[in-house]
């Protein structure tokens, strides 16, 4: 849902850019940041706020791989599967994490905590392997470090509950 706060920021984008067309992508990214993903209802609302057709908003939203049109895990892990990241270290990071969490690429754990997805080069090729969790970038990863990171997340979420 696009609440009052989100709507206000979107209206700020419209004022800020020379042309309202440029507000589309920042608005979609903002909605995702606030709501975790971009729903159909969000896109309908956005088309009304910006005064563009729904088709235009849908076609833009579905083009970009960082925009999720379906809910993901609370921690969405995106692992680089490109060349440089596959040359270093202990083997494919994706296989390791997917084995550890017991889910396949594209899936979410039953508790809704994690989802994983392979992605293309993250610009960390010299500091491989690399991944992103939500919007945080991690480089020079080892299986050991990944274990630690996942444990920390588990602990945080138990204490939060």
């Amino acid at each position: 849902m696009i609440d009052k706060d989100i709507k206000e920021i979107i209206e700020g984008f419209v004022k800020k850019f020379p042309c309202r067309d440029s507000a589309v992508l920042p608005s979609l990214s903002l909605i995702q940041k606030k709501n975790g993903y971009v729903s159909e209802k969000d896109m309908e609302d956005l088309s009304r706020i910006l005064g563009f057709s729904e088709a235009r908003i849908f076609s833009a939203a579905s083009f970009y791989s960082m925009l999720n049109l379906k809910p993901k895990g609370k921690y969405h892990i995106q692992i680089c599967s490109n060349v440089s990241c596959s040359l270093t270290g202990e083997g494919p990071l994706l296989d390791y994490i997917s084995g550890k969490l017991g889910i396949k690429e594209g899936d979410t754990t039953p508790d809704g905590l994690f989802s994983i997805e392979p992605v293309e080069c993250l610009g960390s090729c010299g500091y491989a392997p690399a991944m992103i969790i939500n919007s945080d970038h991690y480089e020079n990863l080892s299986f050991e470090r990944v274990d630690e990171m996942i444990n920390v997340i588990y602990e945080q979420n138990i204490t939060e509950k």
Partner: peptide, 27 residues
């Protein structure tokens, strides 16, 4: 000057795709 964030698309590095993206369209 404004900072404008892309949303995950290699082809948006191509200059005219980048412009399309800045205009709120698919790249």
């Amino acid at each position: 000057v404004d900072v404008f964030r892309g949303a995950g698309s290699y082809v948006c590095g191509e200059e005219t795709a980048l412009i399309e993206s800045l205009e709120g369209k698919a790249g």
